[in-house]
Amino acid sequence: MNKISKLIISTMIIIFYLTNSYANEDTKLKIGLLIPISGENYELGQSITKAVRMAMKDINTDKLEIIIKDTKSDPATTLKSANELKLEGINLTIGPVFFESLKYLDEIEDMIFLSFTNQTIDLPKNVISSGVNSTSQLNTIKKFLEDNEIDNTIFLIPKLNYEEELKKSIKKSRIKISKTHFYEKEPTKLTNQIEKITNYKIRKQNLEDELYRLENSNEFNKEKKIEQLKMKYTLGDVRFNSIIIADFEESLKSVTTSLLYSDVSPKDKYFITLNQWFDKSLINEKDIQPIYYPSINKDNFEKYKLRYQLDFEEEPNHLSLLSYDLVGLVYYLSFKNNFDLSDINKIFKRKNSFKGKIGIFDIKNNEINHRLNFYKIENKELIKIF
């Protein structure tokens, strides 16, 4: 082979590699976004879209492209949109938002969906729950109990559709629970159940018996003792030191009110609940304080809300913060894998951690858990414990 032929071949090889190099630089990794942009939940979809735009602006990369498809919060529409994303070569999608929308997604192979749901039971095998699930919350409560050497904890769970989810999380978190009670939401039934759980009638009878005994005794200074007893509602302690209440908003207040009626005070026993998303109405409920709960990083949440309001002149939905973090998570994992998501199933099986605004995302075995903060409300003030 003469020198000219060799030069031509060498030049062709260089051009080939340079062309491929530029092509790879220009190639964008496409990620799906399945959200309701029409239908009854379209406003939530708009909030998520805006948060995703914020995230993409902050990441500032030309290697990532988000392709949005409508779910209409409907399982059939979700499946149709997911198939459209797959036809575009997409194998990783943020969304859907609601658990009900996941119904048919197991029909799609070689594709992973990072759903906003916090439910972990009965998920299709290609769906990863990215919401703040109950296991993450119980892990945080467990840390608080252990740090403060609090034992004899009981768990109150309403008879609703997340009983099994909480049972699974109790087992998975290995939190020490002395007894679990399932209660009715109807006020009269609830009050009767709380009375039984707290042995209210026995403790009330104990007080009446002791008053009767003193009144008919010759004990020294019995008048003062009787006066002190008459200031009480019951006599005798309950068989727990802390109580976890898996409820929210007005239903949570109904349970705590029933506990107060049964003479169980948060001043004497720890009242703990699940993530309340910084429900401001709890600040004014001084009678049920202190009350404790796990949640996301509040400082980051407030900064995010302020920026969102400045950019869009409206309040963000708290799920939009999750979407902001999920874009960051996807970019982080893509970067770690040189923007090659061809083996998508292995990526979420490997152990990884990502620090988002919500907190730290722990990824392993196709699961996402969150390292949360822990707060208490006392004297009408929200206080971060850790």
Rank of each mutant, 00 (worst) to 15 (best):
N2W: 08
I9C: 08
F16H: 02
L18V: 14
T19D: 08
T19R: 07
T27N: 13
T27W: 06
L29S: 09
L34I: 01
I35L: 12
I35F: 08
N41D: 13
N41T: 03
G45K: 09
T49K: 15
K57L: 01
K57Q: 04
N60S: 08
L64S: 12
I66P: 08
I67L: 03
T71W: 04
D74H: 04
E88V: 02
L105I: 03
I108E: 15
N118Y: 11
Q119E: 11
D122S: 05
N126V: 00
I128W: 10
S129V: 02
N133F: 06
S134W: 03
L138C: 11
K142H: 01
F144A: 01
L145T: 12
D147A: 10
N148R: 13
E149C: 08
N152E: 12
I154P: 07
I154R: 09
K159E: 09
Y162P: 01
I170W: 14
K172T: 11
K172W: 00
I175G: 07
I177G: 11
I177A: 13
F182V: 10
Y183T: 05
E186A: 06
L190Y: 01
Q193W: 01
K204D: 09
L207M: 13
L207A: 13
E208K: 15
E210L: 10
Y212W: 07
N216V: 02
K222V: 02
I226A: 11
E227W: 07
L229R: 15
Y233F: 07
G236D: 06
R239H: 10
F240N: 13
I244D: 09
I245F: 03
A246T: 09
E250D: 14
T256D: 08
D263F: 03
D263V: 05
V264W: 01
V264D: 00
V264H: 00
L274T: 10
L274W: 04
D279G: 12
K280S: 15
I288W: 06
D299Y: 05
E302G: 12
R307G: 14
E313N: 15
S320Y: 02
L321M: 15
S323E: 13
Y324F: 09
D325P: 02
L326I: 02
V327F: 07
G328K: 11
L333I: 12
S334F: 10
N338W: 01
N345H: 14
N345E: 14
N345K: 14
K349E: 13
R350S: 10
G356H: 05
I358Y: 08
I360H: 00
D362T: 10
N365M: 05
E367C: 05
H370K: 03
K376C: 05
K376Q: 09
K376Y: 03
K376G: 05
I377A: 15
N379E: 09
K384W: 03
